[in-house]
Design a binder for these strands. Sequence first.
DNA 1: TATTGTTATACTCTATAACTATA
DNA 2: TATAGTTATAGAGTATAACAATA
Lengths: 179, 179
Amino acid sequence: MPKQEEHTALAYEPVTAPDTDTLDLGILDDFIGMHLRVAYEVAYDDFAWRLGDVALRPGYFTILTLIVRNPRISQTQIGLASSRDKSSITNALRWMEDNGYVTRLRSAHDRRTHLSVATDKGKALQAEMEAKATAHIDVLNAAIGPGKRDEFVAQLKRLIETLRQAQTEANTEACAQTR
Amino acid sequence: MPKQEEHTALAYEPVTAPDTDTLDLGILDDFIGMHLRVAYEVAYDDFAWRLGDVALRPGYFTILTLIVRNPRISQTQIGLASSRDKSSITNALRWMEDNGYVTRLRSAHDRRTHLSVATDKGKALQAEMEAKATAHIDVLNAAIGPGKRDEFVAQLKRLIETLRQAQTEANTEACAQTR
DNA sequence: TATTGTTATACTCTATAACTATA
DNA sequence: TATAGTTATAGAGTATAACAATA
């Protein structure tokens, strides 16, 4: 028995595939989640492509920008502002420190917190990335439509807020029922 | 030397973190890529939560829907329509076949292509998922704004199209320069 | 030569849980 | 007890590249 047959029971019938150009997407055309995934992917790839030689990965731009604009920001704050868990911040921050983009201090008021500050090299890198981010955003804005950027971003934010609230409420209910 | 100091040169100075509520996001507020990532995440989580007991993962909904609405669709066609590589389709399809949701035939016209058809069980599952997807989409639409759904989706699609074209053109140029 | 699907492998991004040190 | 950050680990989702069968 050929290995392939282990998982597939192929019938050899005179059948043909539907026409690729007229596939019926049904509900998928309105299924925002799919479009969000693909949009995120192409946006990520475009920014990564524009960064080119610049060493940082796209995801690190967010973190470095937060540090440059908010000296002595803590890692918990970075996580909150970038919607990532603190454990996801640690690796990025270590890489930035190892490569001389960031220095970490320790708060005198609470010796648990590590406060990040950008070095001159870090500030220069952030400026370089921000210039490429601006070009990237310009292309996105053109695609979204002239003057439509603000509303589009507002819609994305409202989407995020609403779903987070719905989740929080669902959790609260689940807890209440356990009691 | 404490292990921690291998990577961090902490200075013990009297410094404090900035105020969490007034962090300066700078360009990040307009950085659509970040919002797209988070929006995708919360949308994915919301749909996964709504699916609950239903066995399929959110990503499989797209594939199963394509098969139900386009009987005898090929795996390459599924990949194209869902913006995924054919190798990513294989695993999903094997799982669906192993669990009796899908049957695969082979085209008589081109014996390389495997054509997928949903079983009754598969159709029932797709209907169940689609009902939950509808509720999910309703919440998203409310957040986006009444009557704004179509434009929002159109913007996402245009964004995807534009960036893909830009990438294609860049590749073409790169090839031309190699000659 | 090109294409369909399979396989093995690996990568990115991210989270969870257990831990240390501080509070 | 609770919080900040670290670490080890794992998971989801996806792609790349080499391959066999077929065109």
